[in-house]
Design a protein around this nucleic acid. Structure first.
Lengths: 205, 205
DNA sequence: TGTACATGTCACCGACAGGTGACATTAGGA
DNA sequence: TCCTAATGTCACCTGTCGGTGACATGTACA
């Protein structure tokens, strides 16, 4: 109709986002994207090449991972001036909040337990850079985390991921109502408890 | 061929298990089961009714969740005679080991983040009973867990689930090599650290 | 002006999914 | 013995998927 390739490409990419956010990877496909974007599917092949390239293009355009500022605050240096246990706890809590706000990211997280695709590959890379930078933010005057601590942080991060992903489908897990704000506040205080105690032990040793 | 309905039904149910364990829900379907079982798919409809009923039948026959003994040991009463922190830590570690041994369970856990089906419903119920019984085992002379503690246990359990599920597809998460035995030993010591400290704090208060 | 190319439309293909109806064969009871 | 019902086999339906070839139309440039 409009004979505007850029606009068409944008429509397609927006459709990708909508489908992922609303229906997830389960009902995702070339035909579904074309339908949603109200565009002939042949244009998707012409402009992007195919499914993998489409996903990669979407990945590059999207912002489905927290930024450093979002998690570490606008002044990351400030983290090095507070006790390590508080810094780590804050980072984890902020991460939980940031990730919960991203439906597409949660979908990708859920789906990468099923199969690898272009989006999970890109997410993998982004996440690696992210944790590396975050480590740089933490490891300063406050001292470097030990291996023990790293395992604790890994476990807690994994727990956050799991609960955030799961909250899309179900109202509670174990004792916590993961759909409600207060449920997540319970979890945040659990995180602070874990960090506080574990790191205190480390410092004492 | 053999004109033996019972044998045919068994073949079908075994095929369900094989497909779930090897290929997962992604490539699961009536046709796939029929192919794997070397049975005409119409028999699946005749004997079970359809996909939901087939899954329910498989669910009732299978043992894809840890038993209480597997997690609490053959003498659950013994748990009430050790410090609460050690009891909880042991339960969590045993749970991690038990769940890692069950590929089909991990598949269901992964898939229930995508969609609800008959298997996830059954799993939901089994899991609920399991946690209830387990709570009964713990809550004895050692005293009842607090709400704070419950949130910690929830978070750790979620982390275990996530890492176990993820280890099917990827070798490491964060700082931990989740495919290797030593990676899980790091996690176990992290669990003990968390439990020990958090509960110690509770007792002091 | 005319022509070449980018853009968009349409119709179609083969593969596979879930699902069903009709038929052959065997076993077991009247 | 014969008849019925259970068991197993086969062919076929509809719908959706990813993917492609052929064609119409607008646009920009020689």
């Amino acid at each position: 109709m409009a004979r505007d390739r850029q606009a068409t490409e944008k429509k397609i990419l927006r459709a990708v986002g909508r489908i992922l956010a609303e229906k997830g990877f389960q009902n995702f496909g070339i035909n579904a994207v074309a339908r949603q974007a109200k565009v002939d599917k042949v244009l998707i092949y012409r402009y992007f090449g195919g499914m993998p390239e489409l996903l990669r293009a979407y990945a590059e355009a999207g912002s489905y991972w927290p930024t450093i500022e979002e998690v570490a605050g606008s002044d990351p240096g400030a983290l090095q001036r507070v006790p390590l246990q508080k810094a780590v706890a804050d980072l984890l809590c902020n991460f939980a909040r940031a990730i919960r706000k991203r439906p597409v990211t949660l979908e990708i997280l859920a789906w990468e337990a099923i199969e690898r695709n272009e989006l999970s590959k890109v997410l993998h890379k982004v996440r690696k850079d992210f944790t590396k930078k975050l480590y740089g933010v933490i490891a300063g005057s406050a001292g470097h985390p030990t291996a023990d601590m790293a395992a604790v942080v890994t476990l807690v991060t994994a727990g956050i991921n799991y609960l955030a992903v799961r909250s899309r489908k179900v109202g509670s897990f174990g004792a916590v109502r993961i759909r409600s704000e207060e449920g997540w506040q319970q979890l945040e205080s659990a995180i602070r408890m874990i960090c506080g105690q574990c790191i205190a032990e480390r410092e004492a040793a």
